[in-house]
């Protein structure tokens, strides 16, 4: 098994750049998440890797093998790269088992059927083998699509917003199941999502995209703890942003200073502070506007120095009307402003 290496890839539609010099590496046997907002080009990346569209510049390789370059596009049907489409794209005229067996054309019939059933079993859908796509629920359709993509033992599998069409309970469940299936298959995986939680929890590596460019390529922990830009910081969780200047090697915030050894004195900066990096204790510094449950945390909105801030505190932390705020520098990042 080999890495998938994307190098300086560009893709234009008309005069617009959908991808503008994208490079990253999907490590063999690992899960890579492409995270970005709508229109960032993340689905385009998948289509290029799958060979559904040609690249206009740059290259895509698996190990030593060139998949795509402007002069050469190995057709999708010859790539052995599986795809789980956003709408699943199940063949409506074939049963679940027939869908899964579709990619196994080279095998004898019995073997093909057996393999299809095996794969359905691995996603827990053996009993639905004879059902047609429209008879399956959304979650079941997704699992059939996954089994179908994995059945031909591809070199990699690409998932386009695999969990987006599902409700939140099903989503977590399915995400774990999918990851388990993929882990068992030990297969190079790329999935596209706009959901930071999915990306952080599921991926071995994150690639953050915006407007056709890569913002950062890093392990989830690293990206979270050392974002390369304000945008990356904002993409991975709720933050508060303070504007200021570097003074004495540090940037001041209303709740404390953050050291900025690598920035020139007097430079305008923006400080991103993760919502959980602010600690609240009963006091007088700020006024509590509202407290709302937010999963395991409470999301507290406070007002101080004429501004409103968001803070995540452990759930049901007793707070009065006014609080004091302290800042954990590990959750605060300083970026030079333009």
């Amino acid at each position: 098994m080999s890495d998938i290496v994307i190098r300086d890839v560009r893709r234009c539609y008309g005069l617009a750049h959908a991808l503008d010099g994208v490079s990253f590496t999907a490590d063999a046997g690992k899960v890579l998440a492409l995270l970005g907002p709508s229109g960032s080009g993340k689905s385009t990346v998948l289509r290029l890797i799958a060979g559904l569209e040609p690249v206009d510049a740059g290259s895509i390789r698996v190990g030593d093998e060139l998949l795509s370059s402007p002069q050469h596009t190995l057709p999708a049907e010859a790539r052995r790269i599986g795809v789980v489409f956003q709408d699943y794209a199940l063949f409506p005229h074939l049963t679940a088992a027939e869908n899964v067996a579709f990619g196994l054309a080279g095998l004898p019939r019995t073997e093909r059927e057996q393999s299809a059933l095996n794969w359905l079993d691995r996603v827990g859908l053996k009993r639905r083998a004879g059902a047609y796509p429209h008879e399956l629920s959304g979650g079941e359709q997704q699992r059939v699509a996954l089994a179908r993509a994995l059945a031909p033992t591809p070199r990699a599998v690409l998932l386009d917003e695999p969990f987006s069409g599902l409700d939140s309970v099903l989503r977590a469940e399915l995400r774990d199941a999918t990851l388990q299936t993929l882990a068992e298959a030990k297969i190079t995986t790329l999935f596209v999502t706009h959901d930071a939680e999915d990306a952080l929890q599921a991926a071995d590596k994150l690639v953050l995209l915006k407007a056709g460019r890569v913002l950062q390529e890093a392990a989830p922990r690293h990206a979270y703890d050392a974002p390369a830009s304000l945008e990356v910081a904002a993409a991975l969780g709720p933050i508060n942003v303070f504007a200021g200047r570097v003074l004495n090697g540090a940037a001041a915030t209303p709740f404390g200073t953050v050291f900025t050894p690598h920035l020139p004195e007097g430079a305008p900066v923006q400080v991103a502070v993760r919502a959980e990096a602010l600690r609240l204790t009963p006091g007088s510094q700020a006024r509590v506007l509202s407290v709302r449950p937010h999963g395991a945390h409470d999301l507290v909105r406070i007002e101080a120095n004429g501004g409103a801030w968001r803070v995540l505190t452990p759930a049901r932390t007793p707070l009065g009307e006014r609080v004091d705020v302290t800042l954990d520098p590990a959750g605060a990042f300083v970026f030079q402003a333009d």
Partner: peptide, 30 residues
């Protein structure tokens, strides 16, 4: 009735043009 993704899905599963015509397009358009 054929979503664009279905043709793409068939391609990623290794089906060449004739096979897609015979197995996907023709039956769906039957």
């Amino acid at each position: 009735r054929l979503s664009k993704g279905i043709d793409a899905a068939a391609r990623t599963l290794g089906a060449n043009a004739w096979r897609r015509l015979a197995r996907i397009d023709a039956p769906i358009a039957a």
